[in-house]
Design a protein around this nucleic acid. Structure first.
Lengths: 186, 186
DNA sequence: TTAATCATGTAACACGTTACATGATTGC
DNA sequence: GCAATCATGTAACGTGTTACATGATTAA
């Protein structure tokens, strides 16, 4: 999955590993986490597969860099990956794992847990406006404005997901408070 | 994360690896995937940590089994994990990764993509009613009905997530169709 | 002078996935 | 007779995480 993500970014234009890292942090990172070390390892794999090639560039005022570019085979692989969309893509949600076992904590603790949840689990820690601004920023350099559209779709998803978290945790709090009142009434 | 999930299930009562696998499939699997092979490996790790212990039980009409039970140290670890809820738990969403790069496909292909999306990416492939029924089924055996409540909270999350997918993809289709009409009008 | 930015990685370990392997009982 | 259920794993490989390692330039 990460291999194809990197391939997709390189399809926008040649980049160094460092640049891939920064673009990734500004976009896909909201829904997929990757460490720098992992990106550099995946780049080695991509080159072995013949999906990218690297050119060593000497610089005077900065450290030397490897400029990476996608190959024809890489483009084929990217498109093949995109067209293969008939199978479910499993989301992995650690939040649900923890929520599931909350029965081990007290009702009051859990009311607190759900109260803090939307802020703690925010998709955009730097704010939605910031995320939108960054995507518009990149759009300036994008050759095709239609490509930036799908970036915006993912941000829209994030906004809706934050909304879901607020509504869901509110409902959980409501239920827990009802139970609490039932117990004190008896 | 999986280690603590297994620990949490064993906290409900002693189980074999096979039973852990089936309960997992009926509950946490909607938000976290784990293969049988992985569960058995994690069980070895849990035993090495002293968080669970296993008892070999000979059976006559069935294969012998290892009954696993949580230790006092395991319970401590489980609670410690639950109390540690101040840090963001990152969701990993491959759906967003693929959506992000959809600019490589045509508008029409993408309209199709979003039309099929809610069904394809359903959280409960066997249906919501089925998922609810299973959770109620387990509740009968649960010693504390309050514990089943949090299971239901996760199902509620899943229902809301499916709703999000429907609304979001509808909005994406709308936007794409507007762009399509603009292009044909000119 | 100190932090941020640019730039690239290795090593070790942890966790996830795929394929393979075995074999009894029970219900249709 | 065949599929499903019960029951337990190993091996190999792929991916993710944490810690470590280096070093120049630039702006506050």
């Amino acid at each position: 999955m990460l291999k194809h993500g990197i391939l997709g970014l390189l399809n926008y234009g040649d980049m160094t590993g460092y640049e891939i890292m920064t673009v990734f942090r500004d976009s896909l990172n909201y829904f997929w986490q990757a460490q720098t070390s992992q990106i550099y390892r995946e780049l080695q794999g991509l080159e072995k597969n013949g999906w990218i090639k690297s050119t060593h560039i000497k610089q005077e005022n900065k450290p030397n860099k490897n400029l990476l570019s996608i190959t024809e085979e890489g483009k084929k692989e990217l498109v093949a990956w995109l067209k293969d969309d008939n199978s479910k893509s499993f989301m992995r949600n650690p939040l649900m794992m923890k929520t599931f076992f909350r029965g081990e904590c007290s009702i009051d603790e859990n009311i607190d847990y759900f109260k803090n949840l939307p802020e703690r689990e925010t998709v955009f820690p730097e704010g939605i406006e910031n995320a939108k601004a960054i995507s518009s920023e990149y759009q300036k350099y994008a050759p095709d404005p239609l490509k930036a559209l799908y970036w915006k779709f993912t941000i829209d998803f994030g906004i809706r997901y934050e909304q879901l978290l607020r509504e869901w945790s509110e409902q959980c709090i409501k239920t827990l408070e009802e139970i609490k009142n039932e117990n004190t009434d008896n």
